[in-house]
Nucleic acid binder design. Structure first.
Length: 731
RNA sequence: GCGCCUUUAGCUCAGUUGGUUAGAGCAACUCAUUUACACUGAGAAGGUCGGGGGUUCGAAUCCCUCAAGGCGCACCA
């Protein structure tokens, strides 16, 4: 017996060494597994494409969770003999990364992005992204992730950029990408647009003002937008205002003197809210914009990109910031006797997820993806949408899940998913930041109207200027399952590994990412990107709080690995954690599984000490009666654990093995064996020794996906010449 | 406003399609022992499964309803 077993198990001495052993074996790569005869050439594929962590710093426990779940699935399938691919990568995360670097530069050098210029800024961001990437890659390794590093991808690398431009061009030619003046979410702080789902609503206590507007009283929480309000809107059936006709004009006294107001009747008005009358500001409100669209009304910009009032507001107000302008306007109206009353009011203000800036809706010339526009899908493998039929992107997203071609775990997230799709509007994909895929559109310098859309810049010698904007980061991550496999090239990887099998991620990016991958893959390939979506919950601290920098409660997965071992961290994350449910993690919990790793270690020591001179004999048959029963029990366990794995109930698998190993195998069977070895007859002793050896191996195999390091380390020290990682799963 | 989830032992949570006496970890309690392992073992204790109603031979599980907590979406001018 190796003397190692005389001391307690020490993860620090073990984990790095074991990871190196795996990585150097090459068996993270399915091609090498086939080449070396580990996997059959015609074995079915099992693929997971890793959700690429943002290159914004380092990984946290949420990443540790996703890495754990995926590695467990991958190791299980690899042992079952599948051609198993886990493809790792990182995400450039456009706004998140740029704003992080901008913040750092502002802090240390007092400079902003314009001081540095596009080129220098990008250089600095790339430098930061590179560092981040290296940190992240080493953290992924420390977790024991058995992913194929030879296929590693980055959303902004050359191959992925080619995919992005190719898809952009295709969508543009199909009329699904268009540029237009539409109302968008403008973040004055980040100086960029953001998508609807990048908005975070924050509750704010504010005032609600009632102003006299000619014969009407209108309510508003935003007086600063009211300068251009020359339309007054009411419900067509509102009896209180039946005297006023649609289109009727009247002169009313307003902020900067009398203006001509036009009556508009529209049934989107809630008669019960306020006075049932409102004025509209189409340039700065989504709802107002839609009213203006319906009735073809004028729009005027009141607030500029920096959140300041424009000259249209009149001399007294132009140039003021929103906050300063508000009180001044109210004072002006007050002086004119136009303020009827002011009430306290709570509403949700829209803020940008990444910068915290307050969103100002603005009409801007931006690029959009039309989600409701019909197009022809030439080839389709999506149930309910035959090849060559007309469909919409929204329908692609809906059908795949509704027809159960994509299964979401837990199932109840279907409803959330449909709810989101049904409320979905055109997706604004252009961003006014520098880090990301620059929009592959070129304009003739002289005639801005002349557009050239292609994968590469035009080379006809004319003065072409590329669009300044970059693409929403989710555009490139939407292509992730197939861009990572080499598309647009028709690679063998694409044929073998796509559609992928499981997409595992946190439920918090179901819309951001999962839905968009379904959209993009459906559109580009006429395929689903994955068969199963496994959603994990949010990992919280012992008190149930989200981990955050401001709370300072973050746990670094590397610290966990150092203190307790990555195996213990993995078990703590998976144990008692059902899919889709938030979980709490604490050092106490992790400690319990460190003890378990040591238990396995000592079980091995016991078995080795008591079976010296005995080797495994798989054809052994003179089992004692007692051991026959134990074998049945063990076989039943293997069956159950396997079944739970196949149904993605990893937490239950983990629990069953853990219980068996500790409370049955160690506490009962080993104790009983001591007696047999001391007093039993010869056959019982031989039978028991054989049973212990065989069951030890079976336990190690069953435990391997969960605790790969300690199980592999044991395997390497009980006289094995191969890797446990590529052993066959017991049956 | 629309929708989703949660409520099970002191704490943290499992409990797949309804089926014996509802489980685990941690904590606490009693005891044992230098043992394969103190990163230990044995034992005991702890629950009207949020409340109420219903379906059923049978409900933590299905249905209705109420309550508390959490979350998502939309948004009110």
């Amino acid at each position: 017996m190796n003397e190692k077993f005389l001391k307690p198990y020490n993860p620090q001495d073990t984990e790095q060494k074991i990871y190196k052993l795996w990585e150097e074996s090459g068996f993270f790569n399915p091609d090498i597994c086939v080449e070396k005869g580990i996997t059959k050439a015609d074995a079915p594929a099992f693929t997971i494409v890793m959700p690429p962590p943002n290159v914004t710093g380092q990984l946290h426990m949420g990443h540790a969770m996703m890495l754990t779940v995926q590695d467990i699935m991958i190791r299980y399938k690899r042992m079952l003999g599948f051609k198993t691919l886990w493809l790792p990568g990182t995400d450039h995360a456009a706004i998140a990364t740029q704003s992080k670097v901008e913040k750092d530069i502002l802090k240390t050098e007092g400079k902003n992005r314009n001081d540095l210029g596009r080129e220098e800024m990008l250089r600095r961001i790339n430098e930061f992204a590179k560092e981040s990437h290296d940190t992240i890659a080493s953290q992924i390794r420390a977790m024991g992730a058995s992913c194929d590093w030879s296929r590693e991808a980055f959303t902004l690398d050359e191959k992925r950029s080619l995919s992005v431009n190719t898809v952009f061009k295709k969508m543009y030619e199909d009329g699904l990408i268009y540029r237009g003046h539409r109302i968008v979410n403008w973040d004055p702080k980040g100086q960029t647009t953001i998508a609807d789902d990048e908005i975070v609503y924050v509750e704010e206590k504010t005032k609600f003002y009632y102003f006299k507007y000619g014969p009407f009283t209108i309510g508003t929480s935003r007086p600063e937008t009211k300068f251009g309000d020359k339309y007054v809107v009411m419900h067509p059936n509102d009896a209180r205002y039946s005297a006023y006709k649609h289109g009727q004009k009247l002169t009313v006294e307003w902020i900067n003197g009398p203006i001509e107001a036009t009556i508009i009747k529209d049934d989107c008005i809630d008669m019960a809210f306020g006075t049932g009358v409102m004025t509209i500001t189409p340039w700065h409100s989504t709802v107002d914009f839609e009213i203006a669209e319906r009735h073809k009304l004028d729009r005027e910009q009141i607030i500029d990109k920096y959140g300041k009032l424009l000259p249209i507001a009149g001399e007294a107000f132009a140039g003021l910031k929103i906050k300063d302008a508000r009180d001044k306007i109210v004072a002006t109206l007050e002086a004119k006797g136009l303020v009827e009353k002011i009430e306290d009011y709570t509403h949700n203000i829209a803020t940008a997820e990444r910068t915290g800036g307050t969103i100002e809706p603005q009409i801007m010339n931006q690029w959009f993806i039309a989600v409701n526009k019909e197009f022809t899908l030439p080839y389709s493998n999506i149930s309910g949408i035959p090849s060559g039929s007309k469909t919409t992107l929204k329908e692609l997203m809906r059908k795949t899940v509704a027809e159960k071609q994509i299964k979401i775990i837990p199932e109840y997230f279907d409803k959330t998913y449909f709810h989101w799709i049904d409320n979905l509007r055109d997706w604004c994909i252009s961003r006014q930041i520098w880090y990301g895929h620059r929009i592959p559109v070129w304009y003739k310098k002289e005639q801005f109207a002349d557009k050239y859309v292609d994968i590469k810049a035009p080379t006809d010698g004319n003065n072409w200027v590329q669009d300044e904007d970059t693409l929403d980061t989710w555009f490139s991550s939407g292509l992730w399952t197939f861009s990572t496999l080499g598309w647009p090239e028709e690679t063998p990887d694409l044929k073998t590994f796509h559609p992928t099998d499981v997409l595992e991620t946190g439920y918090d990016i179901l819309f951001f990412w999962v839905a968009r991958m379904i959209l993009m893959t459906g559109y580009v390939l006429g395929e689903i990107p994955f068969k199963t979506v496994y959603l994990n919950g949010i990992v919280r601290d012992a008190k149930g709080q989200k981990f955050s920098k401001s709370l300072g409660n973050g746990i670094d997965p590397l610290d966990v690995a150092r203190e307790f071992g990555a195996d213990a961290g993995r078990m703590a994350l998976i144990y008692s954690t059902a899919p889709g449910t938030d979980s709490k993690i604490s050092n106490d919990k992790i400690k319990g599984y460190k003890h378990f790793a040591n238990k396995l270690w000592n079980i091995t020591r016991f078995v080795l000490t008591n079976t010296e001179g005995v080797t495994i004999d798989t054809s052994f048959s003179p089992w004692s009666e007692k051991d026959k029963t134990l074998i049945e029990e063990r076989d039943a366990l293997v069956k159950e654990v396997t079944k739970e794995f196949d149904e993605h109930m990893l937490h239950i698998s983990a629990e069953k093995i853990y219980q068996y190993v500790w409370t049955r195998f160690a506490d009962v069977i080993l104790e009983e064996s001591k007696k047999i070895f001391a007093e039993g007859n010869e056959n019982d002793i031989i039978s028991r020794k054989q049973f212990l050896l065989q069951t030890l191996e079976s336990n190690l195999k069953l435990m391997h996906p969960f605790m790969p390091f300690v199980t592999e380390e044991i395997w390497q020290n009980i006289g094995k010449t191969n890797l446990l990682m590529t052993e066959k799963w017991p049956s």
